[in-house]
């Protein structure tokens, strides 16, 4: 049985889709069998970020409505044999996502893959609650910024009350993925530090993704950042996060706190 992971945040634009693609690819690069599922019905973008936008024939809603088989809707990545994408519908109404339909699809995916990564839409409505409903593990993507932290807190509350795990009295495993972190601005006191966010949200840290031009560059060419340049700082951070997701106890280094004396003087990024 594969593990179901939801990548969620409440707020839009913090990096859910980028992180879903990067973590999915990172796991697949290590030989795991992975499917990334787009739950953002009407505003799908995972296909674009993963470079599969021209290969979408059927989607999640088609499968739920019985118009296509799951195997027909799954798109295999051209670069990684063990990475698959299940796109969201772009034209259908999100009311077509039914709880029963989603449950069936997730169960089928779970029996065929090691990891089922659900890319949640922003907000706290149907798409978002269904994306988190069957999760074993939640990754809360947060920017070091007040509105993102507030929305993450709200989402953590929903993860602890509106998911199957919560309703069965089990504890939902939650991890924080801090994205767009700029160590120089944090050091200067103009950005919340890692510890600030951790203290406020009080869930364990899965990784810190530094603010980097490499992320935009990767999405421009339709490639998860871990595939586009597997040596760049955000890719390395995602590889580490993926190892932690697999249960490895990998120590976390906070970008900027290992900066050299000269680096400090000239304010250069270590990341």
């Amino acid at each position: 049985m594969g593990k179901v992971v939801v990548v969620t945040s409440g707020k839009g634009g913090v990096g859910k889709t980028t992180s879903s693609a990067a973590l999915g690819a990172a796991l697949a690069q290590n030989g795991e069998k992975v499917v990334v599922v787009d739950f953002d019905v009407g505003l799908r973008n995972l296909d674009l970020v993963m470079g599969a936008e021209r290969r979408v024939v059927y989607d999640l809603v088609n499968v739920i409505q019985g118009e296509a088989k799951l195997s027909q809707a799954l798109i295999r990545d051209k670069r990684l044999e063990t990475l698959y994408l299940l796109p969201a519908s772009q034209t259908r109404d999100k009311d077509n996502l039914t709880p029963e339909g989603v449950e069936k699809v997730i169960a089928a995916l779970q029996s065929a893959f090691d990891w089922v990564i659900c890319d949640s839409p922003a907000g706290i409505e149907r798409g978002a609650t269904l994306a988190m409903r069957h999760a074993d593990i939640a990754i809360v993507v947060t920017n070091p910024e007040v509105s993102s932290v507030r929305d993450s807190d709200r989402i953590i509350g929903l993860l602890d009350s509106k998911t199957l795990k919560a309703e069965n009295g089990e504890r939902m495993e939650k991890h924080l993925l801090l994205t767009r972190y700029d160590p120089v601005r944090a050091e200067r006191g103009d950005m919340l530090k890692v510890d600030d966010v951790l203290e406020i949200l009080s869930i364990p840290l899965m990784g810190i993704i530094p603010e980097s031009a490499d992320v935009l560059r990767a999405s421009n060419v339709g490639s998860p950042v871990t595939l586009a340049d597997n040596r760049c700082a955000p890719a390395l951070a995602y590889f580490d996060a993926a190892r932690r997701l697999k249960g490895e106890a990998l120590p976390i280094t906070i970008p900027g706190e290992k900066r050299s004396f000269l680096g400090k003087i000239f304010g250069r990024k270590a990341a």
């Binding site: 007040v146 103009d190 530090k193 600030d196």
Partner: peptide
């Protein structure tokens, strides 16, 4: 003045 403490 630093703004992060206010945010926190």
């Amino acid at each position: 003045t630093q703004s992060a403490p206010a945010a926190r």
